[in-house]
Design a protein around this nucleic acid. Structure first.
Lengths: 199, 199
DNA sequence: CACATACTTGAACAGTGTTCAATAAAATAA
DNA sequence: TTATTTTATTGAACACTGTTCAAGTATGTG
């Protein structure tokens, strides 16, 4: 059979993306196999390769969608808040909360590619999504704490890194054994000390 | 053939570990396949399974060795230093330097297991190595900055997390695009601000 | 020298990503 | 309508993966 026309190409690509994300949410990245995905969408493995060069390219697309979802989530959680320290804190909370609520997708964001070779650089739209998110953080720092532009970039980077570390530490079962506290407490501690002179 | 006695069991296990680490250093975790390792040690895949339940168990053992190596490295780099802020900074430097010098092994430390199922908890000796490293950090914080025990534990956790985040950010090519500065600069910024009241 | 033990092998199985000729349905042309 | 072209889909195939295990052989023991 061919040209089943059950779905337009656009629909089918959306279906692939959506089903892949569902599989990741329930079974993790390791559960996302070409055959499992094909089965989920009611097609055969070959069809996936009409839309993606390889499975890594699909995962990149999923990660892009996750980044945009994260961006929207952070935006919603900070919208309308007064432009002060509380907004910065709300942003940090939003980041870890998203990671905890979308654990598997967030892990996939930082999981290595299937073939370790960094042959295929990230597509431009992916990099843009990442830069958007970063710029969002920087803007909030500048607006809420009156941090000069030069400093804000540096601090945004560092806070991003620290937030990432906190999230990994509280999510990863292997590291959690240290007896890590609640992520919100760690964030409070980080912001209170690191941003001491700006409160 | 059997009982080749080219190596005692102890030697052979050491050879497996050593060769596996070499493969990871050169080809990354994805390059570490049972057959590639078997070929490297001059045996067949089956032999590996006399020493490890599965490949994940082997990787756990490698990670344990890496943790101990990291511990020794941090110890050497901080030994004999005056018990002040400079020692804390040296410790932080040591951590990122180790990660950069042993990039592949460090990435393996935090890579997910091959089969996502968290069926097999970490062995006790692994957890102990992790706790030792953590305690080391905490001790230096207490000794060098006169931080009360209760606070030191919390701060050690947070600094660990932040260090981890900084290292990921500066090592991972996908995140590096943000235009991250040198890790040492980020560490200086983190310590200077976060530990402000203790300098 | 014969026996038992313990280790190593290599084939086999089920799974993986990926490719691609064959095929059949839809779109188009006659 | 019918014939032809275009295009989406298939499913078999290939080269890998981890893992198991009966068979066999070199060593240690009696």
């Amino acid at each position: 059979m061919a040209r089943r026309k059950d779905h337009t190409p656009k629909e089918l690509k959306g279906l692939i993306l959506q089903s892949a994300r569902k599989i990741i949410d329930s079974k993790g990245l390791n559960g996302l196999t070409a055959r499992a995905l094909a089965n989920a969408i009611g097609y055969t493995p070959g069809t996936i390769y009409n839309f993606y060069r390889d499975m890594d390219a699909l995962v990149t697309d999923i990660n892009h969608a996750t980044l945009e979802q994260l961006y929207r989530f952070c935006n919603e959680r900070t919208q309308g808040l007064p432009l002060d320290f509380s907004k910065v804190r709300a942003l940090a909370y939003a980041y870890v909360d998203f990671a905890h609520d979308n654990r598997r997708a967030w892990e996939t964001l930082f999981a290595g590619t299937r073939d370790g070779s960094h042959k295929s650089r990230l597509p431009a739209y992916y990099r843009q999504a990442l830069l958007n998110l970063f710029e969002f953080i920087e803007t909030i720092l500048r607006e809420c704490l009156q941090i000069p532009a030069g400093e804000a970039a540096k601090m945004a980077r560092l806070l991003w890194a620290a937030m990432h570390g906190i999230t990994v530490l509280t999510l990863d079962g292997r590291l959690n054994l240290i007896g890590v506290g609640q992520p919100h407490e760690m964030i409070d501690d980080l912001l209170q000390r690191y941003l001491f002179q700006y409160q």
